[in-house]
């Protein structure tokens, strides 16, 4: 209950600070809030955009939640998202299922590079996953300028994927997949022995080792599942929203997943609500840019406030 209250306070703090910082630029807080509200949930169209933004956030949020629960600091969601999109595009000629499966495999494989380096050379995954993000970004840049460049050859972007996700009322089918993924993640973590071992490893790797759990295997498994979720996010974004790849394809979804997961207190089902909140924030911020001339970058500011608020509460708790 306390954890829920902290999350609500953090979200509220983000909104309030956002509104009042707008006041610095001569806008009334109330008008800003109403712009954000109408731009994110005020119309059918706004609601659909919010849901579209929430889908990748939900999946990258789950990716982070699973990894962090297991004590694996996967900061590489961005890179896994990108390679997921690349694999989905290449495999799209074989249909939707194959395309999304390829996205998950690619994300898992990309993340597993970091766990391999951790297990064999004890390289901290915080660093290696971030470095793999840069590698993936350049891989994407090279691909869209080189081998995967559109046949028209006009822009640094790929051709359209061979398939697209079906739509229901302006929202692609990926939302169903993402919701199913969060139920699956919850079931995995809290209803299976494998999940118990993952959580025990995250909370106390020493005790896990003494209880006969293979800690290295848990780390590799958590990283692979986490990477698969981020890769799936990339695949769904490709087949559902962008339909082609370009350099800014990932748009920070991988990093935003960290804020989503932290606000959800790393709980897979709470991640649904958290991703909706951030999805609304991003969509509302876009409306702010159009209507009030405030940079859409304020959405990132909102994420930062949420994380900082959570950290402050975490420390207050630790101090007592």
């Amino acid at each position: 209950m306390r954890r829920f209250a902290v999350a609500v306070i953090a979200a509220a703090a983000a909104i309030v600070l956002l509104a009042f910082s707008g006041a610095l630029f001569g806008h009334s807080p109330w008008s800003l809030l109403s712009i954000v509200a109408s731009g994110s949930v005020g119309s059918r169209f706004a609601l659909a955009s919010t849901l579209l933004k929430s889908v990748p956030l939900l999946l990258t949020g789950l990716s982070v939640a699973i990894a962090f629960r297991a004590g694996v600091w996967n900061i590489g969601g961005e890179g896994q998202f990108i390679v997921g999109g690349l694999a989905a595009l290449v495999a799209s000629r074989f249909g939707i299922v194959a395309s999304l499966a390829a996205a998950m495999l690619a994300g898992a494989a990309w993340a597993s590079i970091a766990s391999a380096m951790r297990l064999w050379r004890n390289a901290p995954e915080v660093l290696t996953t971030i470095l793999l993000n840069f590698t993936a970004i350049h891989l994407l840049g090279w691909s869209v300028n080189g081998p995967l460049r559109e046949h028209a050859g006009q822009y640094p972007q790929t051709d359209l994927a061979h398939v697209a996700l079906p739509e229901i009322g302006g929202v692609h089918f990926g939302i169903v997949i993402a919701l199913a993924a969060s139920v699956f993640a919850w079931w995995l973590l809290y209803r299976t022995a494998a999940g118990l071992r993952l959580r025990a490893t995250g909370l106390n790797p020493n005790a896990a080792r003494w209880a006969g759990i293979r800690v290295g295997a848990q780390l590799a498994r958590a990283m692979a599942i986490s990477g698969a979720a981020a890769g799936l996010a990339g695949g769904i974004e490709l087949l559902g929203v962008t339909h082609r790849l370009f350099e800014r394809f990932a748009a920070g979804y991988g990093y935003s997943g960290i804020a989503v997961a932290l606000l959800a207190q790393l709980h897979p089902l709470a991640t649904i609500a958290s991703s909706l909140f951030f999805g609304a924030l991003v969509t509302g911020a876009g409306e702010l840019q159009r209507a009030a001339g405030i940079s859409a970058g304020v959405a990132t500011f909102g994420q930062a406030v949420v994380i900082l608020t959570l950290i402050v509460f975490e420390h207050v708790r630790a101090d007592r």
Binding site: R191, T192, A193, G195, L196, R197, R199, A200, L203, N204, N206, A207, A208, R209, W210, A211, G212, I213
Partner: peptide, 27 residues
Amino acid sequence: PEDRTRDGIVAEMTIAENLALKAKRWN
């Protein structure tokens, strides 16, 4: 293990969860 708080139990988990750490199945 010799050091029970460090190596023996997962403090944040319940008694039931700690008892099940070696189990094949979890319900």
